[in-house]
């Protein structure tokens, strides 16, 4: 396990990614936020950080952000503005200070000689940028990327220089169905090739991938995104329910924390159909 550290870091750059897109429920904006590199000894793609601006009362709590890229000088996050906290992140400027703790949680499996299918949807592409950077044999990787906004809003160009990228733009429910159909088809192909699959994106998409992985019996990892408050496993806010295949039989069928047992899970070890339905009385 990589021991996380808490650091106060300086923002070195924050640039919009693509043009803002006008959507029925408001503007869609994307940013690449660059921070000075924390003094991490190591990290794994799929891991995340908790991020909070150091000053400003309007954002009291931190937010989990997937690590997009780490270079010798910097830590890069890919942010889609979805609410007040991400809006505040979008307004961070060079020189601003942030509190970061990480790297947190589990990372994606990386097998040099195994055909590896990356399935990404929307902002779920973020951890795969770092994955493609770090993989010792990028020729064994290919990515299927589904997006409802223009591809210029996502860091696909930089990735396409290193790995094979198949990009599907869906503007209608029918086109979204087509994306899911192609995803299942690619998974079947990777099963035949003895490969593995890694997926990141919104929950409805991950649920489909989870179901396909179980049907096809393809070793598949899912990166779950849940609301989190602590990132340390203490608050129990981000639970996922395990399946009977969970490695520790004592915890099989019980909730585990996405922030510490995940966010990357093997699909067969989760039960995404199980509901945490015990309401407060």
């Amino acid at each position: 396990m990589i021991t996380p550290i808490r650091a106060e870091l300086t923002v070195t750059d924050n640039v919009p990614f693509g043009q803002p897109v006008f959507w029925p429920d408001g503007q869609r904006r994307f940013y690449a936020l660059t921070l000075e590199r924390p003094e991490w000894k190591s990290w794994q793609p799929g891991q995340f950080i908790m991020l909070r601006p150091l000053s400003g009362e309007e954002c009291v709590w931190a937010r989990p952000m997937s690590i997009c890229r780490v270079t010798s000088q910097s830590l890069v996050l890919f942010i889609r503005v979805v609410g007040s906290a991400t809006d505040r992140f979008s307004r961070l400027k060079s020189g601003d200070k942030v509190i970061v703790w990480g790297p947190l949680g589990t990372g994606f499996d990386m097998r040099p000689d195994t055909p590896t299918l990356l399935l990404a949807r929307g902002v779920g592409i973020a951890p795969f940028a770092g994955y493609a950077d770090m993989h010792p044999d990028p020729s064994s990787l290919s990515m299927l990327f589904g997006h409802s906004l223009p591809s210029s809003n996502y860091p696909t160009d930089a990735m396409a220089a290193r790995i094979e990228v198949e990009s599907l733009h869906d503007r209608t429910p029918e086109e979204l169905e087509e994306f899911h159909r192609v995803a299942r088809l690619r998974m079947t192909e990777y099963k035949e090739r003895g490969g593995i699959c890694l997926a990141c994106g919104p929950m409805p998409f991950l649920k489909k991938v989870w179901r396909f992985a179980n049907e096809i019996d393809l070793p598949t990892q899912l990166l779950l995104e849940e609301r989190m408050s602590c990132g340390t496993g203490a608050c129990l806010g981000c639970s996922a329910v395990t399946s009977k295949h969970w490695p520790d039989p004592v915890k099989a069928g019980l909730p585990v924390q996405t922030c510490t047992s995940g966010p990357v899970f093997w699909a067969k070890e989760l039960d995404l159909d199980a509901s945490l339905s015990e309401r407060r009385d």
Binding site: V60, W61, S239, L276, R279
Partner: peptide, 15 residues
Amino acid sequence: MGSPMPRVAETPSGL
């Protein structure tokens, strides 16, 4: 098992 998800939400100066 605990409560259904989601379990946390930020509110002004509160959680």
